[in-house]
Design a protein around this nucleic acid. Structure first.
Lengths: 193, 193
DNA sequence: CCAATTTCTTAAACTATATTAAGACGCTTT
DNA sequence: AAAGCGTCTTAATATAGTTTAAGAAATTGG
């Protein structure tokens, strides 16, 4: 199990010392997920935070009509989890599914609390991670209530260049909240300018 | 300055001891805000977390066309701040404005960090507050990309009964992301069933 | 490599929402 | 009482986005 990436990823916040890193490494579980396989399914309790070492995951909800709505993607060095279910220990309404063959590192609630209590840096680090995610999510809400689908598409492309070239337009359409047909129309209109 | 409400509000998470409560109370600033006056204006750095003791505030963005888009409301016992600006110390793009004559308690970044370092319960408490806000925000994104305006309106009403009867329809329309005229249409259609 | 599946696109008809303009109502302020 | 202001509504017209259906191109699984 290679934990370099995850330990490295904390460097941007409060870097971990040797003891912190070791404590973390001991508590991680590595999983390999095939394309189209699930890390979390609706109805299950989300028991882990997952860090993507390699690959790409999506988290989404399926509505009454069976349509999928993408809430979040995660590629290398990003975290993904249903925080609501994780903390409440109630069944999740979401799926987390691999878009590519992926390798993830997971930590359970018990182990995370152990880290919070015994290695205070994790407390701070995870708060910063959530705060950043929160700010991004606020921007997304503002966009959803104030921008056109075309603007949301261009913003997604600009802010996620890596992801943009890695996933299908169907996935992007589901994320920005339009049908694939309409996204196709947007793309044609943009191309012809 | 009455700090009962704010100390009480932490009870639902990790209750504060006497020393914690006193440390917090010492670091709060009380402000009285008149209707239509600002706690934060676009271009200013957001220097405080604000806790509403009494009254009602809204946080919103003004777009290029001068339209307001409501990101968040806060009534009694709720927190409001531009977390992005607060942490980055960069100018905010948002306004926080009083919809009613309000009383708030504010804490600055320095003082908050002091609490985090010397009274670890605040670390945990503020993380939980943000996690809960994060989960609500995710639900709102999911709604925005998957529900009709009518569904968003009904959900808002159900989840915010207090607020619903306290603010104008113009404010609700701006929050759910439709024009006031269209909200009026939705309401007529609902009334006639 | 083949067969199956998914993806992307097009177009026409339809539905949801925005825009513009106008008038009615209730609240404040003078 | 009058004037002004914000709110709510209505309606006509315009635009944004969905639905349905179909076919071609690309990707994937065996």
């Amino acid at each position: 199990m290679n934990t370099d990436a995850i330990i490295n990823s904390f460097k941007q916040y409060l870097p971990l010392g040797k003891a912190d890193s070791a404590a973390l490494a001991e508590r991680l579980i590595e999983k390999r997920i095939k394309r189209r396989h699930f890390v979390l399914q609706q109805g299950d309790i989300c028991r882990h935070y997952s860090f993507v070492v390699q690959g790409c995951l999506k988290m989404y909800k399926v509505d009454d009509k069976g349509q999928e709505h993408n809430l979040q993607f995660a590629i290398e060095n990003q975290w993904i989890t249903d925080i609501g279910s994780f903390h409440s220990e109630l069944p999740s309404e979401l799926y987390i599914e691999a878009l590519e063959r992926s390798i993830i590192l997971q930590i359970s609630k018990d182990q995370l609390i152990y880290l919070y209590v015994n290695h205070p840096k994790f407390d701070r680090n995870f708060r910063v991670i959530i705060e950043n995610a929160f700010v991004d999510l606020q921007k997304r809400v503002l966009q959803n209530i104030s921008c056109t689908a075309e603007e949301r598409y261009l913003y997604f492309k600009e802010k996620n260049p890596e992801l943009f070239n890695r996933i299908s337009n169907v996935q992007i359409a589901s994320y920005i909240g339009v049908t694939p047909e309409f996204l196709s129309k947007i793309r044609r209109s943009l191309a012809s300018r």
